[in-house]
Structure formats: structure tokens, C-alpha cells
Design a protein around this nucleic acid. Structure first.
Length: 480
RNA sequence: CGAGGUGUAGCGCAGUUUGGUAGCGCGUUUGGUUCGGGACCAAAAGGUCGCAGGUUCAAAUCCUGUCACCUCGACCA
């Protein structure tokens, strides 16, 4: 390796050490940096821009489906947190507490929210009087804190950014419809914008949210074959309503409990994009979510006319609505820029040098396939648009192909153990917690979710673990 | 919380065994030549050696304590 190249570190290959590759990528592409407090991360401009893109896509859809944004306080009194027993038990081990204000010891300690069910419930019980007030469909974009024992940037951090939707309804049917609608919105954006195929389905009792009647998730496969729970949607029934006394006067003039849902996605989605699409040269951003879709490089721009012509192209594409970056730094060579923007995952690179200007064209290079093509200036906007669409489609198909090849239908424990070393196992399961525990104990794999169309997905009637009658089709995998 | 590892310039590291007053590569700054796949030459700046004690004429180096981070496990929507 030439000495002069050492100043940009090379990435660890995915095959050598996937975890190290991930760390190399997120630090070198300047998505994040480590914070002074253990388990916290600093989101740098490129990483935060990606989060803002994700947020914009979801926020738009939340609004379209009648949700309103609010902001709840970060501190929750201990007594308020304690009202729903299962919920407390689930979160108590990882709550951070404020015990002192200024120099005064507090009368009652305050939890830094690990999630906001308790405060939403408290406020809803105040705000709801009559069926005319329902439904209430609120969402907030905020950060939460969970004192995790081990952390990885984006995947599990002590503090992380997310949205949490909380809704209350008159009927169980409405609540269930809401729960499903939000899961579908999660899936839609994940698959069609982030190009990551998702498995959607219901969680087992063991894995469901603390305090929920039912939890549904979308699960993605990373390139090391592990699962990432990328979004969850919960139906609480009247569970929290009973604990927090959220009652209203119904159409029949009776006091009734509301039916409640909550649902969330977090900055963990960024981890999903990185680990679903990245390659040994760095990130690969799907065009629809990429903070920068096109990077434009003038080549040999000390030469007559290059900068001027490149600038014209830049203005044209910017005006056409592309998220485009003109890299006219004269301090680094073109080769350096190629590698840097590839590492950052920009889907399309355009180069413009004296030869291109002479021929009335630009050179285009796709990040996903590394293919180079010549685009004519006359039809530039359309050709760029078509290329970006192809990249988006190609990346989804590639991820889907990978996932398909790494899901195995298994009928015994040996097959299950083998399948989860590099992918998901799809198995028939009796529904007992004991079998989940045994699979976790033996292989380190947990149940992920149960597909909705059980009839179509079933492929046997004995449990993969205990051999008793199987009730469900369940995915098992090692998980982040 | 258990096992192991690491703290020396912005980043990556050497130096610690055998104590003698800190070095290499990259990056950064300045000037010049370059520019179609990680450019080259020259000069320069940059360090309380994680922190606190101790031993010694003398500590990055030896001793004691402490803090932080990393990896693996356990834990964990």
C-alpha cells in the first residue's frame, strides 16, 4: 500500500469483521461521533440530515392520516410512572433518575422518560370527557433515555431520537385499525423510500411491549444475517386506560374506558440503512432517502470553461429538484473525491471535464453498481431522474434477494441452529414460552414475529422445538 | 454485573520488559507544481504521556489507587 494513501483509512471488510466495518463506516463518513457520556452519540450534519429525511417522510404520512404533533415534558414523576405494573417492571431497570434540582434534594424523584405512555395517559385522562373528543391521535418527535448496559451507535444508545405516536379510540376495532395502519406506514416508507424489505407480523407474548395487549413489528435482515427490529406498533386495549383512569361518556351515556395504541420508529432506522445496503467501500444510500442524491465534480477545472459549464449543470439539476452537491474543492484530487463520495454513499456521481464539455455530455457513475454511462446535456434532467429510479429499484431488489436467500424453512432444532448463524429461520411453533427460551438458550436466537397470513405461510403442524402441535408460523433470528 | 484489553499530538501507533526528560505515519498550516480513480516537493505548527498519590538525583516507563473507553458475555420493545 502506498504511503501517500494512508491518510484516508481503509474500511475493514464486512467479511473480516462486520461489527468493525460498521464502526469504521459510521465514524469515517461522519454520520456520528462518540459523546463524552458513555452510550450517547453525537449526530453530525450528514447523519442528522439523514434523520431529517426519514422524519420528513414519516411526518408527512402521519399528518395525512390525521395525526397531530405535540410535545410532552422529558421528566416524569415516579408516582406517575408506577401506575401500570407490567410497564414499570419492563422499564424500571433502565430508567435514569433526576434526584436533585440545583442544590435541593427533590421530594419525589423524576424519571427521564424512557417512553411517554405514562405522561400521555395522564394528560388524556384530563382531556377526554365525551365520545365527541375521540379519537385523539397525537405524535411527538423527541429523544428518550434508557440506561442500556451495552450500546452501539444508532442500534442501541442511551439517548436516542424517535417518534412516539399515542392514540385513543372509542372501540377496539378502531384501535386495532390504527395499530395496523401505522405498521403499514412504517413498512411503506422502509421499503419504498429506504429500500429495505421488511417482515411484518405479531410479536410473541414474551417479546411484546411491557403493558401492551398486542405488539406488531417490522423486522429487517442485516447483511450479517441478524435481525433488526425497525419499528413497532402496539395495541394496548384498555390496559393503560384502566391504570390511568382514561374514561369518557359514551353515546349511550355510560362511562367507558378508551382503547389506546402507541407506535414508534427511531434513529435505529439509520443503522438499518447502513447494514442493509453498505458495501466494502462504505455507505450506499437509496436515492429517495439520500441527503445528497447527486454529487457533481468538475474535472481539471483550472482549464478554460470547466467551472462555468459545471455550474450551469448544477443550477439546472438543482432547479429540477434534485438534492445535489457541487464539489468544487481545489484542495483534493478527483480520485480522492471519488472515493470520499463513494464512502458517503451518494447514489450518483456526475463528472464534467474538458472532454465532456467538448462533446456536450457528462459522465455518470452509479454507486450501487459502479457502472459508468454518458449522459447527454440536452436530456440531462430526465436521464438523471431515470438513473436514480433504477438505483432505487435495484437496491431494493438486491436487498430482497439477499433476504430471500437467507431465510430457511426449518423443521428441527439442528436446522434452526444452522439457519440463524447467517440468516432467519422460519419455523412452526407451539406458542409456548418454554420453547422460545430454549431456542434462545441454545442458539442465542429470539422469536421475531409471526406473519399475518398464517394459513398461507404454514408448512407443517409440529413445533420445531418440542414436537407438540404447532399453532403458529414464527421467524427466529439473532437480533440487534 | 462477569472475563479480557486499551489510554502517549486531531487520528492511528511506537517507546514501558532494562527509569535519563518524547518519536513515527497520516491529517493540519504556508508556498509552489498538479488535477479523467485516494497527487508531489519544501517549510512549519501541534504533547500537563487518562487522573491522583508514592518510590527515585531523575518516571510515559517502577508501585498503589482511581477514572474512562473498547471487545465478548449476561441484560435489553
Amino acid at each position: 500500500m502506498a504511503k501517500k494513501q494512508d491518510f484516508v483509512q481503509h474500511l475493514t471488510s464486512r467479511q473480516d469483521d462486520f461489527a468493525q466495518w460498521y464502526t469504521d463506516v459510521i465514524l469515517q463518513t461522519e454520520l456520528v461521533d462518540y459523546a463524552p457520556v458513555r452510550g450517547c452519540m453525537v449526530m453530525r450534519p450528514y447523519g442528522f440530515a439523514l434523520w431529517e429525511r426519514i422524519r420528513a417522510e414519516y411526518d408527512k404520512r402521519f399528518a395525512e392520516t390525521g395525526h397531530q404533533n405535540v410535545y410532552m415534558p422529558m421528566l416524569i414523576p415516579e408516582s406517575m410512572l408506577l401506575k401500570e405494573a407490567e410497564h414499570v417492571e419492563g422499564f424500571a431497570p433502565e430508567v435514569a433518575w433526576v434526584t436533585q434540582g440545583g442544590t435541593e434534594q427533590l421530594q419525589e424523584r423524576l424519571a427521564i422518560r424512557p417512553t411517554s405512555e405514562t405522561i400521555f395517559c395522564t394528560m388524556y385522562s384530563k382531556w377526554v370527557q365525551s365520545y365527541r373528543d375521540l379519537p385523539m391521535k397525537y405524535n411527538q418527535w423527541c429523544s428518550v433515555m434508557r440506561w442500556e448496559k451495552s450500546t452501539r451507535p444508532f442500534l442501541r444508545t442511551s439517548e436516542f431520537l424517535w417518534q412516539e405516536g399515542h392514540t385513543i379510540h372509542e372501540t377496539p376495532e378502531e384501535a386495532q385499525q390504527e395499530t395496523m395502519q401505522m405498521l403499514e406506514i412504517y413498512r411503506d416508507v422502509a421499503e419504498n423510500i429506504m429500500a429495505i424489505p421488511m417482515l411484518i407480523g405479531q410479536k410473541s407474548d414474551k417479546e411484546k411491549f411491557a403493558g401492551a395487549r398486542a405488539t406488531y413489528s417490522m423486522e429487517a435482515m442485516m447483511q450479517d444475517g441478524k435481525a433488526l427490529q425497525a419499528g413497532t406498533s402496539h395495541n394496548f386495549g384498555t390496559n393503560f386506560a384502566e391504570a390511568y383512569d382514561i374514561k369518557y361518556l359514551s353515546r349511550e351515556g355510560k362511562l367507558e374506558y378508551v382503547y389506546e395504541t402507541s407506535w414508534g420508529v427511531s434513529t435505529r432506522l439509520i443503522g438499518a440503512i447502513i447494514m442493509a445496503h453498505g458495501d466494502d467501500r462504505g455507505l450506499r444510500m437509496p436515492p429517495r432517502i439520500a441527503p445528497i442524491q447527486v454529487v457533481l465534480l468538475p474535472i481539471a477545472f483550472h482549464k478554460e470553461g470547466v467551472l462555468e459549464e459545471t455550474n450551469k449543470v448544477f443550477e439546472r439539476l438543482k432547479n429540477a429538484g434534485f438534492r445535489i452537491k457541487l464539489d468544487d474543492r481545489d484542495t483534493v484530487s478527483p480520485g480522492f473525491k471519488f472515493n470520499e463520495w463513494e464512502m458517503k454513499g451518494v447514489p450518483l456521481r456526475l463528472e464534467m471535464g474538458p472532454r465532456d464539455i467538448e462533446n456536450h455530455q457528462v459522465m455518470a457513475c452509479r454507486r450501487d453498481t459502479n457502472e459508468k454511462t454518458v449522459l447527454t446535456l440536452d436530456n440531462l434532467e430526465n436521464e438523471v431522474s431515470e438513473l436514480l429510479d433504477e438505483i432505487q429499484k435495484g437496491m431494493y431488489e438486491q436487498a430482497l434477494k439477499f433476504r430471500t436467500e437467507h431465510i430457511k424453512n426449518v423443521t428441527n432444532m439442528d436446522e434452526l441452529g444452522a439457519a440463524v448463524t447467517n440468516g432467519f429461520a422460519k419455523a412452526m411453533w407451539c406458542g409456548d414460552r418454554a420453547c422460545e427460551d430454549e431456542i434462545k438458550e441454545k442458539f442465542g436466537a429470539s422469536s421475531r414475529n409471526m406473519p399475518f397470513d398464517q394459513e398461507a405461510e404454514a408448512f407443517g403442524d409440529t413445533c420445531v422445538c418440542c414436537g407438540k402441535k404447532a399453532k403458529k408460523v414464527m421467524y427466529f433470528a439473532k437480533a440487534y
